[in-house]
Design a protein around this nucleic acid. Structure first.
Lengths: 371, 371
DNA sequence: AAAATCCTCGAAACCGGTTTCGGCAAGGGA
DNA sequence: TCCCTTGCCGAAACCGGTTTCGAGGATTTT
């Protein structure tokens, strides 16, 4: 009997024709599909014996519920949304692969998937986000690169759509987040340079609109404070996210009357720009000037000398973000979904004790420029 | 009258309560939802005037059909699948962001989305692929990094699931693809080194199981043939995908009795390993030995001297792949969906005329090793 | 022993769409 | 004028699930 029924389902599958549906499972056992559905979804009004028979049959027949068929009734598509902003100069994101790997790993353990979209501008991101929301392509969203005042957050919050931020924001109301303690990293970087003997230490911040940028400046400042050094606003350079801007920012800082002998950078890419500055000005990194940055880009290992930096574990970040978001979607309050993780120091060769004092460095620069 | 109806729909929306459905549109106009559906989907049995009224009303009410609700009847979820293999040593894929940007751009122009998953092994990729197929999370798949004999292809082909390869494969039956002409690039690289005056030119291939690897070796060989140089199997090094392996492969080649003065690499990462070799052996790249690679990684620009390489436009690749796959899903025959694009040379400093002959280089290496 | 309660499951409605089928009215041909 | 098309749309079934409701039998309570 059971075999007779089974062969029908089997035939369906072999024919490549339509899939095994919930009705096939129901027919195979002689129950109704409503019973199968409730059994598989853990409703309490199904006898344990029945539940067992059903789940075994489902397994045997290879039944897989169709997420989008479930979604039409439940409103859940079991998918996490991720909208990336990819500008021309920022296309290279080496961590992205790891980040995505983390997200998808966590997601697929719960049998969720992730829906990705991209846009080129901030406005484009919001529009894309709206489209995904309208078409309900995802049950919730991961928001990377959060701004101090983030309009994505405002939109989603207003529509009551679950989301989690990778980063923090100014107004944390109803926000869940995961973030790396960039402020701690910058404090540690500054402390480290001080312990190496530097006293004129600059900071090249990231984009002002980003929350992390503000936090990292605060960390830098905290590092100075802890050592009793006074914070000099002149030593906070122009914001830089790219090599080109980093180069410019460093040049400006070096042309101060009392130039810094060490630099902290909010982002690696800006720090890599300093290598060009150094080459052009005849300085040697790790000797004439020291630098410590943040991100952990692989490029940093290829620079000469290698870039000392605080690396973030993007894979772990993706994983945690996915898990937190799923919890959020399932109803946990956002206040209970906030996590911070540390960045880890990768020591390479770009930070060493100063060979020149600030004054000597200034002199040296003047001399070099005359050649 | 119309306003009366409209306000009901509007109220639904304002309340944040359920969305605007096809029935709302139908009610607003006093027609049935079947008419609305057919009007919006271009069925021929709807009067032009009616179609216009309906599409205007849909627009006005902000109606967006739910892709997953449509899917349950049509079997199309309007999503492209992408399963990435992310191994530990290969996590850094700088092109990934651009690639994804290309895919999503093309996809969203047609109002499709992309569903991404990752796995860590070849087997894991196939399992993940199966899961996505079983749950019908995507209507078709993009297969990156194709192998000469690719089991993903065999599976999908057998189940008659639309797919497109990024790369080619041994048995092209029923396969659509987009690929970069790596063979042409390697031929050009070899020809370029020959025209600079090199005569002992090595090639460090990629993973043997990959199709591109075989093609690039062929290109290298074609470059030699074109100049009348004989192909020496000893000058094809050990396969290398990472810096470490590239380093080892180059060392072995340099220890030949007649070492090569120039190297072509199937992949940039292996070529970057040669910088370490050179440093260790006291050689100067671009002077004592020349190298040309392939991929266009941004790291290459930070190496000293910069790595000359053939760059692939990953964004364009993603875009084309998405468009071709959508066509495939809509029914175009795979034979009509095959495209090749060229890689473009990025000239930096790693390839120059030889300063030493092969014999002199051998001598020099022996001397250096004695120090 | 009768009544109330509990456990378990079937029946049917429902989710938001698509698609088939048939009917009605207008138009064309004989 | 009558019949046959044709054009256009409504009615209803359908897709693959979930969820509500209620009925029947078994158990427990009184």
């Amino acid at each position: 009997m059971r075999n007779g029924h089974t062969s029908i389902a089997a035939k369906k599958q072999v024919a490549g024709r339509s899939r095994v549906t919930i009705s096939d499972v129901a027919d195979d056992l002689g129950v109704t599909k409503s019973t199968v559905s409730r059994a598989l979804n853990g409703y309490p009004d199904i006898a344990e014996a029945t539940r067992l028979r059903i789940s075994r049959a489902a397994e045997r027949l290879g039944y897989r519920p169709l997420a989008h068929a479930q979604a039409i009734r439940t409103g859940r598509v079991r998918s996490l949304g991720l909208v990336l902003q990819i500008d021309a100069d920022d296309g290279a994101r080496p961590f992205l692969a790891n980040f995505i790997a983390g997200v998808t790993q966590a997601a697929s353990e719960e049998n969720w998937t992730i829906t990705i979209a991209t846009a080129e501008s901030e406005k484009g991101v919001r529009e894309t986000l709206s489209r995904l929301v309208d078409e309900h392509k995802a049950d919730g969203f991961i928001l990377p690169r959060t701004l101090l005042r983030d309009r994505r957050v405002e939109t989603l919050r207003a529509q009551n759509i679950p989301f989690i931020m990778f980063g923090r924001t100014e107004d944390p109301t109803d926000c869940a987040w995961y973030d790396i303690k960039g402020e701690d990293a910058m404090r540690a970087a500054t402390a480290r340079l001080i312990s190496l003997g530097h006293t004129r230490i600059a900071h090249v911040p990231g984009g002002q609109e980003y929350t992390y940028s503000k936090l990292r400046i605060e960390g830098y400042r905290a590092g100075l404070d802890a050592a009793g050094l006074v914070f000099d606003p002149d030593l906070v350079g122009a914001p830089a996210l790219t090599g080109r801007d980093g180069d410019a920012s460093v040049r400006a800082l070096l042309s101060l009357p009392e130039p810094p002998t060490a630099f902290t950078f909010a982002v690696d890419r800006a720090a890599l720009g300093a290598y060009r500055t150094a080459r052009d000005l005849g300085l040697r990194i790790g000797e004439d000037i020291s630098i410590i940055a943040y991100d952990g880009l692989p490029e940093g290992a290829y620079a000469d000398p290698g870039l000392t930096t605080f690396a973030v574990n993007s894979r772990q970040a993706g994983e945690r973000l996915a898990r937190l978001l799923i919890k959020r979607i399932r109803g946990t309050a956002p206040e209970d979904l906030r996590e911070l993780a540390p960045a880890t120091l990768v020591e390479r060769g770009s930070d060493r004790p100063p060979r020149l004092s600030s004054a000597d460095l200034a002199l040296r620069l003047k001399t070099n420029s005359l050649i």
